[in-house]
Amino acid sequence: MFPASNYVDKVDFAFIFITVISFALLALVTILMLYFVFKYNHKRNKKATNIHGSIPLEIFWTVIPVILVLGMFYFGWVGYVDSVNPPADSMVIKVTGQMWKWSFEYPDGFKTDTLYVPANVPVKLNLNSVDVNHSFYIPAFRLKKDVLPNRNNSLWFNADKTGSYDIACAEYCGLRHSYMYTKIVVITKDNFTAWKNAQIAKAK
């Protein structure tokens, strides 16, 4: 995987941050568990020792995890909060989800079923469904938003790299849910202008 949108780095960082801590803690718990089971097996340790507890230890293993999860929360939050407010100069495209296809309406009035966007330009997508719930998902962009019939959800991104990526429906929507795929094609600004003009010409 490579960074394809403005979200990738932050999402991946938060994910790796949590994964590393989780893996360390899981390894600690597992190794201790196995070590104790081996070392204090009744064959080696005929008589157990009662230890009722330890307040300092309890405080220790409450406070440390609290600090760790607050860190996780923080990185999750800062990675998310950017996605709420699209830049004012974003290009706006209307996305319609319906059983079981996507369609995209551009500011110039034409419609497509594949999403073409220019690279390095903020794009805002207004999401709407004409029937049931869907969810607009671009795995390569680490981005997803539900597409509901009665709300004007939206999302925005800045595609950093030209290329073609999958768009999937992530909210179960019936018979052909798993076929509700299309592509987002990121092209350079110049190519986009050319493509756009061709579309406008076609529409006429």
Partner: peptide
Amino acid sequence: GFTGLMQGALSVNMHIHDT
């Protein structure tokens, strides 16, 4: 539990929710 933490992180959730 640990993978639950990953989903609790908002930015990561946007990616892995409903997968």
